[in-house]
Design a protein around this nucleic acid. Structure first.
Lengths: 143, 143
DNA sequence: CTAAATGCAAACGGTTTGCAATGCT
DNA sequence: AGCATTGCAAACCGTTTGCATTTAG
């Protein structure tokens, strides 16, 4: 909706990715549905539009996207991968009740700890777990 | 070595776990090998002492330990679980080259971000990825 | 003797693989 | 035609399951 096909193509080309039908559809989906979807989410959503679609292609596409900085791969509790089009540094909160993944700003500069002074830190994951405010309210009513 | 069987038993009982042969051996291994082992690491290490040991028992034990605060389950990049007997809040650095997992102190109070003010945060994971100093040195020599 | 702990084998689920089919220029 | 993209089916691997067997109090 928000992005023209031309814009999507440019976006991929800027990330050194040849635009193909599937890649454009996946990108469009990711940009319009910022819910940290799984491979299965993406697959299920695009299947009606691309009846010949395979999961393999989703995985191929996501690996390509990850390697070219289009998405960051998230995982929580060692479970299935989620994909985040927002590759800027930020934290995630995963609700253990409803499963929704919330973004939050890391409201502090993350200092490299002394122990890691000579380490080459390339990536930082900050994941919180618990119960989100919506589920907290519901839980309150139940009791 | 460091811990008598009596001490190990007490440790489990304090965590509301009935001491069994396997549980004691696993605990002993964890306390003496603080390398964030996987289920397979633990299994392989104990097999010589307990020839009838099964992986299922390792998984059962680790789930019990996790539920009773004896270990924290770690996972990196969505891969196999690692188990940490140190359940105090601290961060981890995983070297993408040698695979070693380093601990570090989180040298800052982690403020709950505004976005999560009404959230019930129960767990915090802080994982860094990159190349550790040992591998950095090696890499320097190679080139 | 009973209940809990352990072990076996099969199933599971997400992901990866090898290779064939298809599409694009 | 030739190379990249896509799709299929099978393999893979860590984990979980159901149930039978063993162990310990």
């Amino acid at each position: 909706m928000k992005n023209t096909i031309k814009q999507l193509k440019e976006y991929l080309i800027n990330h050194n990715i040849k635009p193909s039908t599937i890649r454009l559809k996946v990108l469009e989906y990711l940009l319009n549905n910022r819910i940290h979807p799984t491979a299965d989410d993406i697959y299920k959503n695009l299947l009606p539009q691309i009846p010949t679609l395979s999961k393999t292609s989703i995985y191929n596409t996501m690996e390509l996207f990850a390697n070219n900085g289009v998405v960051k791969i998230l995982s929580f509790d060692g479970k299935e991968a989620h994909y985040d089009v927002n590759t800027e540094l930020h934290g995630h909160f995963k609700c253990r009740r409803c499963g929704i993944i919330y973004d939050f700003n890391v409201p502090f500069d993350i200092p490299i700890p002394n122990e890691l002074k000579e380490f080459d830190v390339k990536e930082v994951d900050i994941n919180f777990y618990g119960i989100c405010h919506k589920c907290n309210k519901q839980r309150g009513q139940e009791m």
